[in-house]
């Protein structure tokens, strides 16, 4: 079979500061996974993790992209942003740690639970970051 048809690729852009439109990539991805007949629990985990990653770009970075690749057994999501980067990833991963501004907190974000939530809802989570350049989050979930 043509290897190209064995996987599906989707890409999206995210704009920093645009909270009203956060959630569009995760909704689209959800739709595709549902059409593929992936079970509800797996989809839910993926959607939660992707949504948190999106919101992090919106809240903390300037702009970013989401690249999704789905094959027979798994989904790989790479969220890449241009932004301030994360100086201490281990610290950022701790539940409750947040540098969110007052404005972001007033919008109901900034509890410091995003990264821990992503960890909980993915099978693999790899974060690479360079201060003043940007952050790349790679998440993999395997299907049942």
């Amino acid at each position: 079979m043509d290897p190209e048809t064995q996987s599906m690729k989707l890409t999206f852009n995210i704009h920093g500061g645009d909270f009203t439109h956060a959630g569009q990539p995760s909704s689209e991805v959800k739709k595709v996974l549902k059409q593929l007949g992936i079970d509800g629990k797996t989809i839910k985990g993926i959607v939660i993790a992707l949504y948190e990653a999106e919101v992090n770009v919106v809240a903390h970075a300037w702009k970013g992209t989401v690249e999704v690749e789905i094959d027979e057994s798994k989904i790989t999501i790479i969220v890449r942003d241009e932004g301030p980067g994360i100086p201490d990833i281990e610290l950022a991963m701790q539940a409750g740690y947040s540098t969110a501004s007052k404005k972001v907190r007033e919008m109901g974000f900034g509890a410091g639970m995003g990264l821990p939530n992503m960890k909980k809802n993915t099978d693999e989570l790899i974060i690479e970051s360079e201060v003043d350049k940007g952050t790349t989050v790679k998440m993999i979930n395997y299907f049942l």
């Binding site: 048809t5 599906m8 593929l36 027979e72 299907f143």
Partner: peptide
Amino acid sequence: RVKAMEKMN
């Protein structure tokens, strides 16, 4: 799933 993906593509 593979066939479904082909169709969606």
